[in-house]
Amino acid sequence: MRYVRIHYRLFVVAALALAGCRSVPLPDVAVEPPRDPVVPVVSAQILRWRDGSRAAASLTFDDSTLDHYLLAAPELDRRGLHGTFFVITGVMQHGVWDDFGTRRLQFSWNQARRLAARGHEIGSHSHTHPDVSALPFARAELQLLKSLQRLQREIPRQHGITFAWPYWRSTETTRALASRYYIASRAGQATTPRYRAVGPVGARPEDMQRVNALGTRPVETLDVWQEALHEILDDGGWAVLSLHGIDDGVIPREAIGWQPLSLETYRDLLDVLVSQDFWVAPFGEVVKYLERRDTTHLHVYADDDQRVIIDVHSPLDPQIYNVPLSVRLTLPPTWHDVEISADGQPLAWHATSAAVVIELPAEASKLSVIPSATPGASIAAHSR
């Protein structure tokens, strides 16, 4: 168009001159430079905890006693929660464990598989429950390895198995051993004051093979635990609880674990966690989330004026660290709706304020974000 206008003007001036006419100045023609496309501005942030929760919490149960299957797990199921059951792999097949002269009935491998099918984690509590920290190197390694092998054989679909130290005891040597076989190990403290003195788990444990836990015992009250939980919630940390027995006053004494809480107290504890802004998840799932969170890098760039690409880089094996990451995307205010895909597959999202939150699959390598062609209310109107 610019070419036509300029040459048309030259032609007219030349024609007038040849005709002996006085030239008349022609008005200037404004030629607009080509416009650069408007590049959408999008930012991506991995959230500290799943779905933007203020803190995380994990309920763990030691010793594979029958009350875990009969009482603890059903209460979790009723609230839509999942826990971690650390089992003594070498005694489960016998159905009973001699705990220093006290008979404790064990749940079976079939029952363990049912728990896993319902979303609970089955972890290792060693092969025969010795004080691993006091064993010679070879015997300590055998306890860790035999337990892992049995778990992998009985529940093969589990990846990235976790461990709980018997009696909460470990050494630098045994922790180094555990790191060969398990992605993380749980330790613990017997009382709330001691737990708080050692330090609750922050947003990142100092040693993944000695994750501190609060050992809930009937000598303490719910108020004491709540105070510790509120501190963790305010700090954005991770509350790991170590439980043993649950007593409803009905099931046989042999079916109940060490230092049992009453069923009523246990229910109250679960209700406290549900009522607060905790992401309650199995021990191993939280470990996987924070490992992915701290090692994943997102590279955001505009492919054109209507599409944003997010490259995902992580050094972790997605078969082991197989949990999604919650990612908040802040989008241009003119985008009323969006379509998001991960490696070509549509990805669900929900809105929060002027942003959207997605669950990034472990195997995803590239995200595509485009404004939807369907008109609608602003993203903020979809927020929950």
Rank of each mutant, 00 (worst) to 15 (best):
G80Y: 01
Q158G: 06
K146H: 14
D247E: 02
R253T: 14
H94N: 12
P315A: 02
S378M: 04
D36Q: 10
W168R: 13
H82Q: 11
P27D: 14
H159W: 03
E363I: 07
G284P: 14
A19R: 11
R153T: 14
R186F: 06
I251W: 09
S368N: 01
D304R: 04
E291N: 02
V224N: 08
A197H: 10
P156W: 00
P333F: 04
S126A: 15
Y181K: 01
P371H: 12
R267T: 10
F86P: 13
V323T: 02
G344E: 06
W279T: 01
L329V: 05
T295G: 03
Q143M: 10
P25M: 03
G83I: 09
P324R: 00
S108Q: 08
Q93I: 07
V29D: 06
R35H: 09
F61W: 15
S185H: 03
L76M: 05
T295D: 00
Y8N: 09
H297W: 00
Q276G: 01
L269E: 10
D294R: 07
L360Y: 05
L81D: 02
H82Y: 04
A55M: 03
R5C: 04
Q306Y: 11
V312F: 02
G199Q: 11
D277T: 04
V250H: 12
D207E: 12
A117P: 00
Q276C: 01
Y167M: 14
V211Y: 07
L76W: 02
A112T: 15
L298M: 09
A176H: 06
G188T: 05
F107T: 08
R50K: 15
F278K: 03
H336T: 15
F100L: 08
L360C: 09
V224G: 11
R328Y: 00
V308W: 03
D51L: 13
T295A: 07
E206L: 08
G215R: 06
A190W: 12
P371N: 14
S383G: 05
V12F: 03
R157D: 10
T173V: 15
A184D: 14
G245A: 13
P193Y: 05
R104N: 01
H336C: 13
L290S: 00
R194S: 08
V357K: 12
G236L: 04
P375M: 02
V211Q: 05
I155W: 07
A213E: 09
T374M: 11
L298E: 07
S365V: 06
W349F: 13
I246M: 09
Y3W: 02
A187F: 06
L105F: 04
A228M: 09
G249K: 08
Q259V: 01
L360G: 07
A117K: 10
D131Y: 11
V357M: 11
V29C: 04
L76Q: 02
P318L: 01
R153E: 15
D28L: 15
I232V: 15
E264G: 09
